[in-house]
Design a binder for these strands. Structure first.
Lengths: 240, 240
DNA sequence: CGCCAATTTGAGGACCGTCAACGAGAGTGG
DNA sequence: CCACTCTCGTTGACGGTCCTCAAATTGGCG
């Protein structure tokens, strides 16, 4: 009998963690049960509404968080007050900037979300004591770096239609469990936010969405709910 | 008397390292003298010509390198063979992708460069034995991530002229020692490469360069040598 | 000097931004 | 129940920025 999957080993870890999306994520997935218990004692599950700021740019946040559900957008606030979205994060990603007290970005809930908040000081200590954890966070940073560079290609070389298709593909592959070919999901972003992320205007985004709809690549229901009948088709829009 | 600056402590480290640009960089700056000696014994200083590929995308490189001089461009090779530059690295940056054998990018010398090459297996072992080193590489990854996101803003929201100004600013602040206000440097990139990095065409880059020249923000000599009489002026072009 | 590649310059057109009007839902109040 | 308003999204017309195609110019190198 396989003990590892029987639940017996889950004894000793906080109840709240047992069914948590982030339980096997970047942070919690590499902690010992003792550390997990310690972190659990000092962490707080929090519901945040869409649009709510989790970390403000330039502030000295003394907290990190894990995303348990929902989508978080990373924004750069320009000197003139304009927002620019530079990345999205999905459950069970880790949110925060190790080592540096001051955040260079603001993190804002794109959808209603649940996050698990814990003190910076505690995790920083665990990082210095746990090479595994350092390594795991390093790994996430490298993955985000890959994603950011992928996005640089998208913004630099692709047309408006390809940009919109790229974003739909990004969301489809991260936000939702998918069947073999067909995929359906709710857009976590408004048209204005999509435009922001893609470096386009609302109108252009809207036009390209209807183009994609008319060419049969996607179906749109209720403005927010998207159905992709054939993901391969969507991918062909991108590399074209 | 301050021993730390007298050179006495340099005894025991490899001769080749003593005057190396990367000696206090991301990797070598955190190694013990024993580790430095070990790494030095297994490393190789190599001159690479401009245009030479250091790491090929998709290949399984068994080496890492430090940039000792010159500029390296990170490229994504598209399925259709086109190149897209997604980042630049300067001395004394570290080049390589810890943990993952297969590179997702190709690294190519933009200028003639000198690099210090050492075996992946050795550094990977040092990483696992030296939390300081892990931490230092993690730090570089986070810095690159910040730079990539800064670039996303540049590509997404700025005009052609602002993009060119941004690139000149990036190069001016990384490639050369600068005086109080005035700065002069050689462009490490051709017009074609600049266009590639900025998501523009050669012609547009050329036009915007002459615009900047005519408005007095830069002076151009020999196509490659740029003089910025007033860096503040250049910065004002960007945030505008 | 002559060739070659790189860069610059010019003319015209496509794509996307700007401005404006319209339509669809959601919430409010009569 | 309906009118009203507010926000969000869509659609259309027009103009500007940047791309495309083409030619001229520069500089390097034999």
């Amino acid at each position: 009998m396989d003990v590892a999957h029987s639940g017996v080993l889950e004894v000793g870890i906080p109840v709240a963690c047992r069914s948590c999306q982030a339980r096997h994520g970047v942070v919690c997935g590499v902690l010992s049960s003792g550390q997990l218990k310690d972190l659990g004692r000092h962490s707080l599950r929090r519901k945040v509404d869409a649009g709510c700021e989790i970390i403000a740019q330039g502030s000295e946040s003394s907290f990190y968080s894990n995303i348990m559900s929902g989508v978080v957008k990373l924004c750069k606030v320009m000197p003139d007050g304009r927002h620019e979205i530079v990345g999205l994060q999905f459950a069970p990603d880790f949110v925060g900037r190790p080592f540096v007290r001051e955040s260079t970005l603001s993190a804002e809930a794109a959808t209603d979300a649940e996050i698990c908040v814990f003190p910076r000081s505690l995790l920083d200590r665990m990082i210095s004591e746990t090479p595994e954890l350092q390594r795991s966070l390093h790994d996430q940073a490298l993955k985000e770096l890959d994603a950011a560079r992928e996005w640089i290609v998208t913004l630099g070389r692709r047309t408006a239609e390809e940009k919109v298709a790229s974003l739909l593909h990004l969301i489809a592959t991260h936000a939702e469990p998918q069947t073999a070919t067909s995929t359906a999901f709710d857009l976590p972003l408004s048209r204005a936010e999509i435009a922001d992320f893609l470096g386009l205007t609302i109108e252009t985004v809207s036009r390209q969405m209807t183009r994609l709809r008319k060419s049969g690549v996607i179906r749109i229901e209720n403005f927010r709910h998207i159905i992709v009948p054939d993901m391969d088709e969507l991918e062909r829009m991108i590399s074209a």
